[in-house]
């Protein structure tokens, strides 16, 4: 890839659009989460502010912007303020490799999925720093849980993605999309149903969402690693959490659901539709399943998902070898 002015302009424009996407996504997702939760629990959800309560999330974000940044005593100052920043900025880079449309890849890279996995690893680091620097037992416990959970669930996630990579012979998200067809029966989910299932379960674990939200389990740990953050410090964690959800949904859409391809006309609308369908699924199971215990969480991963992922990868390798 040559270094040129066009690529600089492209990256800067892309980063600005991605920031807008992250903030807009958080607002939409908060509204969707509260409405779906209300529907599942047979109550109206937010309905006061704006038509059908649509402006509630906007008001909440205004409140977060205006809130005082309160810092508890005896925290490790540098690490305390570094943690939300390291949570927020790597996520910007992750969206660069996603092919949004036939012509809309912010930064075309050959090793797109490696880029995403590499920078996603920085996310757990921010949880750790936040939990450590807060000088609070709840935060520390939340951080310790976050590490063992994320380290564990990263492995089946990578195994599931690796099966698709083996099958399509490329780590470029654009090429993986191009190898799938327009109609649902031509997508990778038909060829790799087990990998899709493993990926779905481990993405819930990877994004620390209920029923796997042990790092912040509010009934046990107040709010886990971000207990001591207020105002924008909390808002940055919140934004990056929803952005991470959007990212893993995009990856699920690209790897298993045909990416930007869809019936009638290819384009970013299909990618967004599929990603938000995955997000809706995540919200749905959050309000349907109770939180698992920590030993159950790790048992699901090490005793079920990991062997299943290895078997799936092994079978895929054999079939690919025979077919070629």
């Amino acid at each position: 890839m040559d270094l040129s002015l066009a690529i600089f302009v492209q990256i800067i424009a892309a980063v600005l659009l991605i920031i807008a996407l992250m903030v807009g996504n958080a607002v939409v997702m908060v509204y969707m989460e509260r409405k779906v939760a209300g529907f599942i629990q047979r109550r109206p959800g937010p309905y006061e502010v704006g038509p059908w309560g649509t402006l509630q999330a906007v008001c909440d974000s205004m409140k977060l912007l205006a809130k005082q940044l309160y810092r508890p005593g005896n925290v490790d100052l540098i690490l305390y303020y570094l943690a939300p920043i390291t949570a927020f900025f790597p996520v910007l880079l992750l969206f660069l490799a996603i092919p949004f449309g036939p012509w809309l890849t912010p930064l075309p890279v050959n090793d797109g999925i490696v880029l995403i996995l590499a920078f996603a690893g920085l996310g757990v680091l921010s949880n750790l720093l936040a939990g450590w620097a807060s000088n609070n037992k709840y935060s520390l416990l939340g951080a310790a849980r976050a590490v063992s959970q994320t380290v564990a669930y990263e492995i089946p996630m990578i195994l599931a993605l690796l099966a698709v990579v083996l099958q399509s012979g490329s780590m470029d998200l654009k090429r993986i999309t191009d190898q799938q067809g327009q109609w649902p029966w031509e997508w990778n989910i038909v060829l790799q149903p087990l990998a899709f299932f493993i990926y779905l379960v481990s993405l819930v674990g990877e994004t620390n969402r209920a029923p796997f939200d042990l790092p912040e389990a509010e009934s046990e740990l107040t709010a886990g690693f971000h207990t001591e953050y207020s105002g924008m410090g909390f808002a940055l964690f919140f934004l990056s959490e929803y952005a991470n959800m959007l990212l893993v949904s995009f990856v699920a859409a690209v790897f298993f659901l045909g990416g930007y391809k869809g019936p009638f006309a290819d384009g970013f609308w299909w990618l967004f539709l599929k990603a938000y369908a995955v997000m809706f699924f995540m919200v749905w199971i959050r309000w349907t399943f109770p939180r698992v215990r920590f030993d159950q969480l790790l048992n699901i991963n090490w005793k079920w998902l990991l062997p299943l992922g290895l078997i799936n990868l092994w079978l895929t390798a054999i079939i690919v070898k025979i077919a070629l």
Binding site: V114, L117, A118, L122, L125, A144, S148
Partner: peptide
């Protein structure tokens, strides 16, 4: 060598340093 650079991030920061942190906390 972009592949090696990304692997450096994935393995050394995403796994090794996180495990060191974990050991410190335990």
């Amino acid at each position: 060598s972009p592949f090696l650079a990304l692997m450096q991030l994935l393995i050394y920061i995403g796994a090794v340093c996180v495990l060191i942190f974990f050991a410190i906390m335990l």
